[in-house]
Design a protein around this nucleic acid. Sequence first.
DNA 1: TAGGGACCTGCC
DNA 2: GCAGGTCCCT
Length: 289
Amino acid sequence: MKVVSNTASLDVRLSVMCGQVFRWRELPDGRLLGADGDNWWLVTFVDDAFVVEGNGDSVDWGRYFRADEDWPAHASTVRRLAPELAPYMDVLPGLRLLRPSDAVEETFSFLCTSNNHLSRISGMVGALAGYGPTLASVEGYEVHRFPTVERISDIPESELRQKGFGYRAATIPVAARQIVERGGKAWLDGLKETDYPQARLELLQLSGVGPKLADCICLFALDHTEAVPVDTHVWQAATRLYFPELAGTSLTEKRYRQVGDHFRDKLGDLAGWAHQFLFYENLLNWRRR
DNA sequence: TAGGGACCTGCC
DNA sequence: GCAGGTCCCT
């Protein structure tokens, strides 16, 4: 398929590179090559528009970028209910909440993120993707479909160690086995239908999944858009904006809940999208603060 | 419930 | 030293 678009409310590059998904790479000429579930995409930018090529159709593309939602209206709502976030939205216009199609892909991507930085995370997620079948060969790059939980559960820890996964080499296959025991991908997908608190509780039982990862999986993989993953960046921003008396203290379970509830009380189902502006702005600028 | 340290590896 | 944490221990 080929789609041409100049949707002003969508910045493709920002949305796929800000850490919601980890399957995109920027080609030397500036084009973007990405994978999501069964799909691969090649995005070319021309002036203020972009052209999309890939094996999916406009429905797949639209689902991924939540084209069914009124983003300008969302932005107005957040600016009205949380005006203190406006400066952060101003510097990151067009950032959308994505809806990745494969919960397994997102779950194991986030298992690579603990105590880690973006460049290494992408490499590790790419290494995991290498265990899946080839989707296509595009511009000389092999694009893989992310492997199944069953395949991941079979990977020896030693092999992942060798590939540089560090201590995550131990938790990743174990978490895969735990998911397989519960029913595999169907179980994970089923958590989309349970409510957010319950889904979060179930995810917390998995090895290597703590409060922050559970919320990432809820938000990005399970469509629980009220989830607010509180990491070091969101914690810094939240203490700066809302809880100055807590600045510099450690992020305990109680404080973690305080931050998430604060966003949910204010913004409801828009909390997960809104928090993303604080997260990414702080990630880009924390060294200067 | 809060605080502290270990854990892999790589980059500032 | 410190990364988009988790787990285990006072």
